[in-house]
Computed example of a mutant assay.
Amino acid sequence: MRIALALGDAGGVGPELAAKLLAHEEIRALDVTVVGDARVLAMGAAHAGVTLDLPVIRPDQVGAGLPAGHVLVDLANCPVEGRPLGRSGDDAGAACLQNFAAVLHLAHAGLADAAMFTPFNKHSMRLARPSYVDEIGFIDAAIGAARSGREFNVLEEVWNARVTSHIPLRAVADALSTDRILSSLRLTAEVMAGAGKPGARIGVAALNPHAGDGGNFGHEDDEILAPAVAAARAEGIDATGPIPSDTVFVRAVRGEFDAVLTMYHDQGQIAMKLMGFDRGVTLIAGYGFPIVTPAHGTAFDIAGQGRADLGATLMAARLGRDLAALNPDRAPRPLPADWARAVVAETLLVAE
């Protein structure tokens, strides 16, 4: 079992969390290919107060037969001397994009069973590449995905999937359609089954207050969401809704649902982070291998202080490991020709 781990934003707690994770007794038993700048990882280890001793290899040395245990692929892409902590920067953003592209290709090629990253900062990434929107679009472009995946927020007691993600709130209603919601329900059922939860019970959160109250507060729930739920049920998916979003998570936590499908980002994120900020995991699913990260951000306010809580990062590593173990026969794919040079040159990243 091998995890490919991309180092997160050098200005935040990502390097510290990576170092703490690699030093954790449970993770020492896993094969982990760390991708990033050796100087960033050393900085993270100093912040974390841990000692790491990883073999270091060049990108052009990556291939079949990687050494067991932990190994660092040094992209030498983010000098840390003189770089301030707690701030966005195009240098940190560019390094994160490179690191992320590399671990995606390693997992896509079968040289890792799961991909993982410590927290990125989207502002840094957009400073480096203004066309960057979110991880989904980046993954699609980087590995030439046949279909887009979806983000799931995962706690032990409930999973959260969403129909739309990183778009303005004013655009949500126009972005919804019966087909899009049905597609999200199908993928949620598929991912949950792949995670060992077949026949998952999915509560569908309404868009409007009181699920539209019969049209008094909007017609989307009756005209768009309800037909999608009915179509999903006709296909054998155990979906219920639309349910007012102020009660759907209450019902899920009480055991009525295994997952909640929400219509937009914060509709689910607020509930999930209130329930488990220090243990929540973001899972990006639908690509043939799990992609995981802690659900919290870069925490610029405590960067460099050694205070970052490992809980969600450790949970992410466990989830990636456990999901990968459910798919042991995944067929490997060849790495792109001269992939190491291409990653370092950023030619595998999303085009402007």
Rank of each mutant, 00 (worst) to 15 (best):
L5W: 07
L5E: 04
D9L: 12
V13G: 01
L21K: 00
L22N: 04
R28M: 12
A29T: 15
G36S: 08
A38L: 07
R39Y: 03
R39C: 06
G44M: 07
V50I: 08
T51R: 13
V56G: 11
D60H: 15
A64H: 13
G65Y: 11
P67W: 03
H70A: 12
D74A: 03
L75A: 01
L75R: 03
A76F: 03
P79A: 07
V80M: 06
P84R: 10
L85V: 09
R87C: 06
D90T: 12
D91L: 14
A95S: 15
C96V: 15
L97F: 04
Q98P: 03
A102T: 07
H105T: 02
A109W: 02
G110M: 02
D113F: 00
A115H: 02
T118D: 09
P119A: 11
P119L: 11
K122H: 05
S124K: 09
L127H: 03
E135N: 04
F138Y: 10
F138G: 01
I139H: 00
I139Y: 01
A141N: 01
A142H: 01
A146M: 04
R147C: 06
S148N: 06
R150M: 15
V154T: 12
E156Y: 03
R162S: 15
V163I: 13
V163L: 04
V163W: 05
S165Y: 13
S165H: 13
A171I: 02
A173W: 04
S177N: 06
S177R: 06
D179Q: 14
R180T: 11
I181T: 04
S183K: 11
A189L: 02
G194D: 04
A195T: 03
G196L: 04
G196S: 10
G199E: 10
I202S: 11
V204Q: 12
L207F: 14
N208H: 12
H210T: 10
A211Q: 10
G214R: 13
N216C: 08
F217T: 00
H219F: 12
E220T: 15
E223V: 14
I224R: 06
P244R: 13
S245N: 14
F249M: 12
V253E: 05
V253S: 03
G255E: 05
V260N: 09
T262M: 08
Y264V: 13
G268S: 11
A271P: 08
R279G: 12
V281H: 11
V281K: 09
G288C: 06
P294M: 08
G297C: 08
A299W: 07
F300M: 10
R307H: 09
D309I: 15
D309H: 13
L310M: 05
R318D: 06
R318A: 06
A324S: 06
A324F: 02
A325S: 12
N327P: 01
D329Y: 00
D329F: 01
L349V: 09
L349Q: 14
L349R: 14
V350W: 02
